[in-house]
Simulated assay, not measured.
Amino acid sequence: MKICIFGSGAIGAFMGVRLHQAGAEVSLVARGAHLAAMRERGVRLLAQDEDTVVRPRCTDNAAELGPQDYVIIALKAHSVPAAVPSIQPLLGPDTAVVTAVNGIPYWYFHKTGGAFEGRRLETIDPGGAQWDGFGPERAIGCVVYPATEVVEPGVIQHIYGDKFPLGEPDGSTSARVSALSEAMAAGGLRAPVLERIRDEIWLKLWGNLCFNPISALTHATLEVICADPGTRAVAKAMMLEAQAIAERIGVRFRVDVERRINGAGAVGAHKTSMLQDLERGRPMEIDALLSVVQEMGRLVGVATPSIDVVLALVRQRGEVAGLYTRPHPAAAEPTPAVAAQ
């Protein structure tokens, strides 16, 4: 089994180590000092009671690798459209593209049936770069739950979690998704194949779409956001708007909003990824977590007043910091709110 992980930062390299340990032929696409260290010394994984070094093939040029059985995209979501041409050499006739990214994936309305079948989402896939470049038929959904960090070039710290739920857009248990699930399990990862992968995508997004931007605006940790009555109320309002949108397109939430907020607060003094990116001067992942929810709200006729306000603020925060560029104007500019139905 040939697997290329395109975007081998903290999560990608962690997956690469585990799949390499399972016996897969793994290659990692990365760049900079991190790539140089992995080439020279291998990939070092630090975890509880574990200090492991593996030596998969590492490169910054995917064209060296040839067609793969699976390409796991582990980039930040906003980086994927521009990377599509670089990923093309990895795609053979039967290559699956596994979207291990945050937020709503480009293939979301593939095989959904109904009024929005085949709909493209401009805020996350400008001009249909991924839809046309990969094809939605290649896609396998993947929700990323573990927390990892690059503590120094070539060295990954595994903080917690081992779950990567997988799912076909049509809900089937295909041979290709089953084989990937088995390979990940052999490497010690939990990768259940879900019939309703979109439910899982929204469950994670439900918290990310509010806690990430609120933390970037306030610099507060999760426990502070969830304990303070004001910011908790803002988060809840955003989540209820998102829930109305998701349920309009068939999503089922297995927990209620209060339980989801309490679960986030229980994580403690944790800085969200968006706040970490802001503090470290890295591009902020706004569109896949928030702009796309606004876009989908307009699509299904659900007003998003709380999301609109927070999105406007965090976009400006990102622009002022030089860490965010708005998507295509047609998808980025506000339109009059419609009454929720």
Rank of each mutant, 00 (worst) to 15 (best):
A33F: 03
G114A: 01
G118A: 03
E295P: 12
P334G: 08
I5Y: 09
A37W: 02
V310I: 14
E241N: 13
V29P: 01
N212G: 06
F134R: 03
P67G: 08
T99D: 04
S174F: 10
A303N: 15
Q88H: 15
M38R: 02
K163N: 10
A186T: 00
Q157I: 04
T123Q: 01
I225M: 11
Q48M: 00
V320C: 04
A186F: 01
C4N: 00
A244C: 09
A77F: 09
A183K: 00
M1C: 03
I245H: 08
S86H: 12
E285Y: 05
A83F: 03
M296V: 15
I73Q: 07
A74N: 11
N212E: 11
R44F: 00
D69I: 06
V251G: 03
L278E: 10
P136Q: 10
A24M: 12
A303R: 15
V224C: 00
P329L: 07
D162W: 05
K271P: 02
E117S: 04
T325C: 10
A186V: 00
V17Y: 00
Q316G: 05
R282I: 13
E117N: 06
M184F: 02
D132T: 15
A246Y: 02
L75C: 07
K236N: 13
L278I: 15
D162Y: 04
L278S: 11
V314Y: 02
A129W: 12
A10Q: 05
D51A: 02
L91C: 13
I249H: 09
A216M: 04
D199N: 08
D51I: 05
P283T: 14
E122V: 07
Q276G: 05
T52S: 00
Y106A: 08
S174N: 09
D228Y: 08
D51T: 09
G42H: 02
S181F: 06
V314L: 05
I286N: 09
P305H: 12
G127M: 07
D125Q: 11
H270C: 10
P336L: 14
L91S: 13
Q21M: 14
I307L: 15
L222W: 04
A242I: 11
V54A: 03
K163L: 12
L75S: 09
T325I: 10
A185R: 14
E40V: 02
G301E: 12
A303S: 15
D51Q: 03
Y106K: 02
L209G: 00
M15N: 08
A227H: 08
G268H: 14
A96V: 06
G265T: 12
P213Q: 13
N208W: 06
F164K: 07
S8T: 02
R280A: 15
L189N: 05
P192S: 12
G207H: 03
T52K: 00
D60K: 04
P305Y: 08
Q341M: 14
L166P: 08
I140L: 15
S215A: 15
V71F: 05
L205P: 05
K236W: 07
L91Q: 13
D199W: 07
D287M: 15
V155I: 01
C142H: 10
V101W: 01
G161Y: 10
R252C: 04
V338R: 08
R39A: 05
R259H: 05
A175S: 10
A139H: 11
L121V: 05
A100I: 13
M238F: 03
